[in-house]
Design a protein around this nucleic acid. Structure first.
Lengths: 148, 148
DNA sequence: ATAAAACCTATTAAAATAGTAGGAATATAA
DNA sequence: TTATATTCCTACTATTTTAATAGGTTTTAT
């Protein structure tokens, strides 16, 4: 499987925060309760998101987390890339993959590259705002293809 | 990462066999040597492909493996689904996933479904023949998108 | 001071993936 | 009919990745 719980949880947290539509900080405890995710595990995920500068944590009483930008400013890619290590569909397309000696003769490389592009394009064009208010879904989440 | 070595090796073997363009059986030993894959590991992969009826094994001296059909009759999906366990991008879309109690409220479900469809469509429309003779690649492996 | 919160480091548990070992059954050909 | 080359079968082991837990430290508001 491709997207780990880390990435899926990260998305859920971001959506959760986007939906609170408040400027104040929301404590992890609340988010974890609402999303039914272990506090400790969630903590380790939020750390990644803070480190990646897509949200801010404030310590101490009254502290918590909040988004740094408006929901439409976050692409799904920008969230997943912080938690997923890689979004590449195969090892040879990962960032610091050791160069493949078979690359020149490889009959599958183009296919993997095409897929990689497809997936990135898909995630690049969905924002947090698209996820919170799924009104005009159709153009974003296309219906099943009817071609042969 | 999404596609395991099992699946990638399976594809390479199928391509290898397609390129031999002979009706006789090719021993695993030869394939493994040509593809530089451990014989024993390859064996476990070929077992899956035989079981899945996409190729036939013949025992004994002079034996080996051969394709059951013409290369253009194999979609990439038909090969990967035998080795990959699942091609679903997330757990909740796997075949016998336990029903998710959050499904009705889930803001990400449509996105995952859309991605699943995208990937399946992609693999469904590439055949072994497309991989062996990559002439008119362009319409199969689209170039980078130029949209914003 | 106290309490509530994020932050930090380390460890453990579970699952999936990758790979290995050894022999049994089968078919061909000398 | 015997030797040989092959697939087939069962089991095991190792490695890596993912998921989760534990316990303490620092910061901030009241």
């Amino acid at each position: 499987m491709m997207i780990s719980t880390r990435g899926r949880y990260a998305l859920r947290v971001m959506i959760d925060l986007a939906e609170q539509s408040t400027d104040s900080y929301i404590p992890l405890k609340e988010i974890a309760a609402r999303q039914e995710i272990s506090e400790k595990y969630l903590e380790s995920i939020l750390k990644l998101l803070v480190k990646g500068k897509i949200l801010t944590g404030l310590r101490g009483k009254g502290g918590g987390y909040r988004l740094n930008r408006a929901p439409q400013e976050y692409t799904v890619t920008s969230i997943l890339e912080l938690t997923e290590e890689t979004l590449a569909p195969v090892a040879c397309l990962e960032k610091d993959a050791e160069p493949c000696t078979r690359a020149s003769a490889c009959k599958t490389l183009n296919m993997w590259k095409g897929l990689d592009r497809l997936i990135r394009d898909y995630f690049d064009h969905i924002t947090l705002a698209d996820l919170t208010d799924q009104v005009s879904e159709a153009h974003i989440f296309p219906p099943p293809s009817t071609s042969s």
